[in-house]
Design a protein around this nucleic acid. Structure first.
Lengths: 246, 246
DNA sequence: TTCTTCTCTGCGGTATTTTGCGGGATCGTT
DNA sequence: AACGATCCCGCAAAATACCGCAGAGAAGAA
């Protein structure tokens, strides 16, 4: 087995699996691990892979490792645009927290004249920049983790509200419905949904088919599910017919 | 499973859920919690996440106000240091809005364990970064200009509160007392003062001897006036004896 | 062919990394 | 104060990496 052959095999395996182990390659190629390591080192110097302790990763892998500050920014913009189409002048709009909702708020058209109600501190602050809309904040006790109001009082206040539409930033959603991690947050989200006419969940596709400890609501309770994907996308197959996709 | 793989999985989970628990990751990845913790520590040092007790938070999710050049930053730091000396563990502290108060909040010692109550959205957001303190936000209707809660409800809620100390960011102060521009803001500030034991006004010297349309309170109603100047400074001459200078 | 030169490979020995675990400190909640 | 969960530190075992060397083998020249 020639050196070039070995290295070609390694590259191929890497393209298939995005990862190789030195030990595996050693047995597959019938050479010592040192030889494999030397090959990996060479390919690494040529930038054809990312060498790590124990093996190597495809260079594409490295890409997913570092971009997180602008994480899914584009997808969230797409979601925001779709969501904004549902808002009309004069509406009362209920907003949860999260970066997707924040993207929605920052892309809100300036001439929009609506009443926004939120329980999230960052969202409230962002909304205050909008010249033509009224902003209400609900709640007193604030959760540090979620940066939003929690507790009995906000739930009670939400019960007094009749909003036209509620946009829910969604952490996890699967065919059974929306779920979340913290009990206090769940309580508030449930109350928000009950107070709203249209119930809309916003989720980037990555959050599809994940679930967490506590359930927020069933899929059938939602009026719309907005992702960055086309409604006909195969990733949404298991949701089609069970919820109105946008 | 390679280490980088694990770390990539962790960052992905973090991007999806904004929060991860060490215990969850431990079972999901089939490694010990120590290993997870070490991964979290590494990623934290690289600034890719925010490590907290029990797990980690996404840095993108927790957004804080960037230190946009605070006007008269150095003076406000000096004021903040003096003000902090008045705060003790276990106190209930009432905070108004403004950049001086914000400076106070950012220089708050991390180990301080107090309850903070505020009506200002940016102050609330800043307070949420403080690990050992409770944060309450009062009010529902928000004023865009002042970025704080206004209206009858917040006044009523303030009336129910017995705070140990109230720090008032001050726009204008002269020998007759504290004054401000917006009627709605005045109402709230008055209510704050009435609910607090110690009433403290924070003002940079620039604001001394200026006055505005509406009066908040008389000088004699204040317990302390804090400026960046020494109490004996000639600029403060007309205030000496009429209010306790710090 | 035979010799020289060069690259490649495996091996032994040692260094480094990674991981789990025990024990004590610390945190958070009751 | 007390309890359980979590964290941190140091250790030991295992895996992996690196270094130098010597031999095998290929390529080229006489």
């Amino acid at each position: 087995m020639l050196k070039k052959e070995r290295q070609a095999y390694i590259t191929q395996q890497l393209n298939i699996h995005n990862k190789v182990l030195s030990s595996d390659l050693s047995t597959q190629l019938n050479v010592s691990e040192d030889t494999v390591r030397r090959d990996l080192n060479e390919l690494s110097e040529q930038g054809k892979l990312l060498k790590v302790h124990g093996g190597a990763l495809s260079t594409g892998f490295h890409f997913t490792l570092q971009n997180q500050s602008i994480y899914s920014h584009k997808e969230k913009r797409a979601i925001a645009r779709k969501a904004i189409n549902l808002i009309r002048d004069g509406m009362v709009v209920l907003l949860s927290g999260g970066t997707t909702i924040r993207e929605l708020v920052t892309t809100l058209p300036l001439e929009l004249n609506a009443t926004f109600i939120t329980v999230s501190v960052p969202i409230a602050l962002e909304l205050l920049n909008h010249p033509n809309s009224e902003v209400m904040f609900l709640g007193t006790r604030l959760s540090k983790g979620a940066q939003m109001a929690v507790g009995a009082e906000v739930v009670r206040k939400l019960a007094d509200i009749r909003a036209d539409i509620c946009f829910l930033g969604t952490n996890s959603i699967d065919v059974d419905g929306v779920s979340d991690m913290e009990w206090e947050v769940i309580e508030v989200k449930k109350a928000m949904l009950e107070s709203a006419g249209l119930k809309v969940s916003l989720a980037i596709s990555e959050k599809l088919n994940t679930r967490q400890r506590f359930s927020v609501c069933g899929l059938n309770e939602l009026d719309h599910l907005i992702t960055e994907l086309e409604p006909g996308d195969p990733l949404l197959q298991s949701y089609q017919g069970r919820v109105n996709l946008l």
